[in-house]
Write a protein that binds this DNA or RNA. Structure first.
Lengths: 221, 221
DNA sequence: TAGATTGTTAATCGATTAACAATC
DNA sequence: TAGATTGTTAATCGATTAACAATC
């Protein structure tokens, strides 16, 4: 039993990483018209054990109902609170090349509560160009902009060779979370979070199991 | 001690996931002119403990030299073998919207041994359009193409609602690894690997630690 | 040689899973 | 009520870390 409003016990980071996955599945379930969902059914959908889901959620309170499962709308609302995404977050993007343009055009951010408010680049060829709803601003204005708008989240889509310098400026300006698309490990001070997206890393992870030509028998999963 | 050529003992998936990270760092180190690197120095660069690096690598053989560390070129070559990326892989991409276009234009794939050979979409508006070096093909030709060229890797960049159906066709045609950009959990048979990229999941993971307005004290990392 | 760093063992730490009383 | 499913405990499983003899 867990008293509502009680401070949480320690939450492993790996559990935190699963919460957005639960949230995503629950959003879909709500659209499909489900009012309740059991840990078993949710687990099957996500390829996760039901005990793990119950254990994860129990760290934050008692959300379920014996015999019925979890009320989708309630769990959704609670997960949004836990993840601090009940309100909208503002973000900036640095890098307006192919990748940056795609990121700037991706509608999924706004749909899910992350609003891109500015795009920066240091290439004179790109500055002033339109990308989606944005006009590319000079990188020299980045620090001032981040400070002035109290931006806490940034995405980096510049070449690997420039990424660390960009991160340094962002952090200095007050950014606390960086989604890094550059294929390089960033060094940031304590208190700043970095998440990385490098699709090639995922491909290389898969080819390990596929064998030399992809015809290997696969045992593990 | 490990006899060269010996079959590997069981390799945890989490270790496999780190190998591409080591590879990426080693490539950079080679460009910077380093001939040798110690587990300590590599670990500092990656934010990983030196013992973990040595343990991971020891699963595949004895690559290091006491007192000196690892020879960068040797370790690079060996990691490429282990990950089965000594030769080039062919890929197809499904989805030619904003995201798909960016993926198709991303030069990092080819640079790192993954060659995109075809782009498919089912929107008549997009079929025939040029994206980078590619001309968008009708989705109806996808299955035949994948079979004819023995494609084993595919990337999905279609709306969430269409992703599962696309995956089903790809798997049926012989694809064994899918890099999924659609924000949905795919169901695939055993023997097929799926890796997911959903940037919003990463953002939500970070906001948990940032507090309601990003000014929270951060303890964990 | 002396210093540095490996590969490996054993200990620690942490996460997952199974089981079940509680209860809707 | 009977059936279903939760929240939690304890057991299992697996990964990380520290330590150090071996040795380049």
């Amino acid at each position: 039993m867990h008293t509502i409003g009680m401070p949480e016990r320690h939450v492993p980071d790996i559990v935190v990483a699963r919460l957005p996955l639960y949230l995503r599945a629950l959003s879909a379930l709500q659209l499909e018209g489900h009012a309740f969902i059991s840990s078993k059914a949710l687990g099957e959908r996500l390829g996760i054990g039901p005990a793990q889901i119950r254990k994860d959620l129990s760290l934050f309170g008692d959300f379920g109902r014996q015999g019925k499962g979890y009320e989708v709308s309630v769990l959704l609302a609670r997960l949004r609170e836990i993840l601090n995404i009940a309100h909208e977050w503002l973000m900036v993007l640095v890098g307006a090349g192919h990748l940056g343009s795609a990121v700037a055009n991706y509608s999924g951010f706004a749909q899910r509560g992350f609003r891109l408010v500015a795009v920066f680049d240091n290439d004179p060829q790109r500055i002033g160009a339109r990308i989606g709803e944005h006009v590319v601003r000079p990188a020299s204005e980045m620090e001032q902009f981040v400070r002035a708008h109290s931006i806490r989240l940034a995405m980096i889509a510049v070449p690997a060779s420039a990424a660390q310098a960009v991160a340094d400026v962002l952090v200095h300006a007050g950014v606390r979370g960086i989604l890094n698309y550059a294929p390089v490990t960033l060094n940031v001070p304590p208190g700043v979070r970095v998440e990385n997206i490098d699709p090639v890393l995922h491909l290389q992870h898969m080819t390990y199991y596929l064998g030399e030509d992809g015809d290997e028998a696969i045992v593990s999963s």
